[in-house]
Simulated assay, not measured.
Amino acid sequence: MDSMTTDTQRTPPSNEALPVQTGLADEKRKALAEGLARVLADTYTLLGKTHGFHWNVTGHHFHSLHEMFQDQYEDLTDAVDELAERIRALGHFSPGSLSQFLKLTSIEDEHGVPSADEMVRQLVRDNELVTRACREVVAIAQDAGDTVTEDLMNQRMAYHEKAAWMLRASL
């Protein structure tokens, strides 16, 4: 560092963040971040499962399921980024490793290659599970007066309810 640079010109280290002062109390932001972290973990786990099923689906409905699964994992890819960024906007760090996601998720991992119908059943169950996790965060957001997180959760619930319906209809 140049000896002529003053302390006020230095950029603070990345771990020295300015306090978040958006009108939400610290304890409310923490509760929101924790709820969002669970939704993020469920979404990331569902993303991986859906992508794996996309690669491995077989049978008479291969083409339609392969494409539906692709549409779904592409949406989930965007969703995980949006969820993680909302956690960061609330002033908290987002989980970002597989081990963190596995500790937080409620979605059961699939270790084999189930039949196409079983894939669909699992994805219906898992999309409904994510919907319920989002609904829990809505209650926290309403209590905190956080309409931004509430809007995000409403968008995600609408998506997961529709995905579950489309999957159910394919059986």
Rank of each mutant, 00 (worst) to 15 (best):
F53I: 10
F53R: 02
H54W: 12
H54D: 13
W55Y: 10
W55Q: 11
N56A: 07
H60K: 11
H60W: 13
H61T: 14
H61C: 04
H63M: 13
L65N: 04
L65H: 04
E67H: 10
E67M: 09
M68N: 09
M68Q: 15
Q72N: 08
Q72S: 09
Q72C: 07
Y73I: 02
Y73P: 11
E74K: 09
E74I: 10
D75C: 08
D75N: 07
L76F: 11
L76R: 03
T77M: 07
A79M: 05
V80A: 08
V80W: 14
A84E: 08
A84H: 09
A84V: 13
I87D: 00
R88K: 10
A89T: 14
A89E: 15
L90R: 03
G91Y: 12
G91A: 09
G91L: 13
H92N: 10
P95G: 03
P95L: 11
P95Q: 12
G96L: 12
G96Q: 08
G96C: 10
L98T: 15
L98P: 11
S99T: 14
F101M: 09
F101N: 03
L102E: 07
K103L: 11
K103S: 11
K103P: 06
L104G: 01
T105G: 02
T105P: 15
T105K: 11
S106I: 01
E108A: 01
E108L: 04
E110M: 00
E110N: 08
H111D: 13
P114A: 03
A116L: 04
D117Y: 10
M119V: 02
M119Y: 05
R121A: 10
R121E: 13
Q122G: 05
R125E: 15
